[in-house]
């Protein structure tokens, strides 16, 4: 009997086969790959419109084979709303960093979630402003040193980190809200299944969905990629617990 090669893992079709500009080991790439895999698996490539943020993923649109637009800093949910309103049958997702979503764009994300209209947001929590050189973000942990909290974040001078997933889950609008982590194979598998539910919440017309991804920024954390993954487990997860914070009926 002849031997044949079975594919265990292949590059997704909606992935545009370019080398990304991300730093080595940056989990933006993992989140991107999961999006491409799901777009393929769910047959969404022809219907997808991605909305990209200002942040390290500003060039995200270059890496996929589906239609995309580039939003102003923090405004991706508003832009996605405008697209979804005119094209309700298309699949519209916004991809946002934590400075983008939880600082300058807080109003837009809260109201998109409150409206509850079926758009999907992939939210990258890497604890700092990666693109501008590692400044403090709304998600920076207490004690964490950044270029604008050089002695470590303190509540007195910098206030407290924001738990976006929990906060948005308080609203009646969202259909699905989860926090996942991209630190390990097992958690990346779980991240993908959460993202699948989030995509489904839109495809099935149920409502707004958001997946917060605990991510790394090895460059600005000044850690190796492997150490960065460990830091996510040891320091970030205790403050930002993983889980599903809102799952309305019909989301699967």
């Amino acid at each position: 009997m002849a031997e044949q090669m079975k594919v265990i893992y292949e590059r997704p079709k909606s992935w545009a086969n370019k080398v990304t500009h991300y730093c080595p080991g940056c989990t933006h790439g993992v989140a991107h790959r999961l999006i491409a895999e799901l777009v393929d698996e769910m047959g969404l490539m022809d219907k997808t419109i991605g909305v990209w943020p200002v942040g390290c993923s500003v060039l995200g649109y270059d890496y996929f084979n589906f239609d995309s637009v580039e939003a102003a800093h923090g405004r991706a949910p508003a832009m996605a709303t405008g697209i979804k309103v005119t094209n309700p049958d298309n699949f519209v997702f916004a991809y946002q960093g934590d400075g983008d979503l939880a600082s300058i764009g807080m109003a837009e994300i809260v109201h998109a979630a409150a409206r509850g209209w079926p758009i999907t947001v992939i939210f990258i929590n890497n604890g700092n402003y990666g693109m501008t050189g590692g400044q403090m973000a709304p998600t920076t942990l207490l004690g964490q040193k950044t270029t604008t909290s050089p002695l470590g974040r303190t509540p007195q001078t910098n206030g407290f980190p924001i738990r976006v997933a929990e906060m948005l889950a308080q609203l009646d609008g969202p259909a699905y809200i989860a926090r996942v982590s991209l630190d390990s194979p097992v958690n990346i598998r779980k991240a993908k299944s959460a993202m699948r539910k989030a995509f489904n919440a839109q495809v099935r017309g149920i409502g707004f969905s958001l997946v917060e991804c605990l991510s790394t920024c090895p460059t600005n954390w000044r850690l190796t990629p492997v150490e960065s993954m460990e830091r996510v487990r040891k320091e970030v997860m205790p403050y930002f617990p993983l889980g599903e914070f809102k799952v309305v009926e019909g989301v699967l």
């Binding site: 009997m1 002849a2 090669m5 893992y9 790439g29």
Partner: peptide, 16 residues
Amino acid sequence: LVCPDVAIELYREVKA
């Protein structure tokens, strides 16, 4: 699963 650069593809022999 962990490769951020989609650099790895995996295959396996199967008896046809």
